[in-house]
Amino acid sequence: MRTPVVVVGDVATDVVVVLSGEPAPGSDRPASIVSRGGGAGANVAAHLARLGTPTVLAGCIGDDAPGAGLAAELSAAGVELRLRTVPGAPTGTIVSLVERDGQRSMLADRGANLVLRPADVPAPVPGGHLHLSGYTLLDPGPRDAGVAALRAATSAGCTVSVDPASSGPLRRYGLDRWLADTAGATLVLPNADEARLLTGCPDATDAARALAARHPVAVVTLGPDGALWVAGDEVVHRPARPATVVDTTGAGDAFAAGLLHAWLGTRGASPAAALDAVLACAAEVVRRPGAR
């Protein structure tokens, strides 16, 4: 039987703008624009449920049509919802501007996600797993809910994973503060920039080792260079799968979900095998616009 996962994080609409042509300040630039379900917490939950892991999503949506649509989509994907509807607040919206090489800039209106409360997160089930999207900690509105969820999960003997989310907000929040908040996490899932920022190590492998000195497992994504798994003295690197990159939005969330599915479901699997499977999932996401 698979370990159930409670995911705490944002629910949002992603407006993905895939740009073409050359930059044209003050003029027009061609683009392909699509709207898809997004939000880091919702993305991880949707991918986990589709992989067959029992998943509960705790978060907030607005009392509006986008919120209702996102809830219906997530429920159809197999996610058990613990979403509070917030009257008068809009459901979150993220505009993702995607350049021709697949890299993107994010414009975020987090809306109802910013009023997440500790009571919105279900009580932990002993033996379960909590995955916390770092965005929950990086704003004063939902921070109390994130910290309370972490403490309750560790007290109940659950395993805990945390994604630092984004280097800019992380720097503004305070590195020592974030490290203190997440000290009880079993597994941390930064990208290379976040790992370097959190540790002060310019080399990604050294940064991963430094994080693994604080947590039982550190897995660092390296973009086109693949990923690192570090636990104790064990360091495993696996290359990325070849892919034609259309949009990197949500690739980290797909990676996190795939890793949790592999790690929680087959504890005896080798880190190399787990990383290979997960990198294949992430490669599928970057081939198309949108996070899921």
Results as ranks from 00 to 15, higher is better:
residue 2 R to I: 01
residue 3 T to Q: 08
residue 4 P to R: 10
residue 7 V to Y: 12
residue 11 V to L: 15
residue 15 V to I: 15
residue 25 P to Y: 11
residue 28 D to L: 14
residue 30 P to L: 02
residue 39 G to T: 05
residue 40 A to C: 14
residue 44 V to Q: 07
residue 45 A to K: 07
residue 46 A to K: 05
residue 53 T to W: 01
residue 56 V to T: 15
residue 59 G to Y: 00
residue 59 G to K: 01
residue 59 G to I: 06
residue 64 D to C: 12
residue 73 E to Q: 14
residue 76 A to N: 11
residue 76 A to C: 10
residue 77 A to T: 04
residue 88 G to Y: 05
residue 91 T to D: 09
residue 94 I to T: 13
residue 98 V to H: 08
residue 108 A to F: 08
residue 121 V to Q: 02
residue 126 P to T: 06
residue 130 L to S: 05
residue 131 H to G: 07
residue 135 Y to L: 05
residue 138 L to R: 06
residue 143 R to L: 08
residue 143 R to Y: 08
residue 144 D to M: 11
residue 144 D to P: 13
residue 147 V to I: 14
residue 148 A to P: 07
residue 152 A to Y: 01
residue 154 T to Y: 03
residue 155 S to Y: 04
residue 158 C to Y: 00
residue 164 P to M: 11
residue 164 P to W: 06
residue 165 A to Y: 06
residue 165 A to C: 13
residue 167 S to A: 15
residue 167 S to W: 13
residue 169 P to T: 02
residue 171 R to Q: 14
residue 172 R to A: 13
residue 173 Y to R: 02
residue 174 G to C: 09
residue 185 A to D: 01
residue 188 V to F: 01
residue 197 L to H: 05
residue 204 A to L: 00
residue 206 D to R: 15
residue 207 A to I: 05
residue 207 A to Q: 09
residue 207 A to D: 05
residue 210 A to M: 08
residue 211 L to G: 11
residue 214 R to S: 05
residue 222 L to R: 04
residue 223 G to K: 07
residue 236 V to S: 09
residue 237 H to T: 15
residue 240 A to H: 01
residue 247 D to T: 02
residue 248 T to F: 01
residue 251 A to C: 12
residue 262 A to G: 14
residue 278 V to H: 06
residue 280 A to H: 12
residue 282 A to P: 04
residue 283 A to F: 02
residue 284 E to A: 14
residue 286 V to K: 08
residue 287 R to F: 01
residue 289 P to R: 13
residue 290 G to F: 03
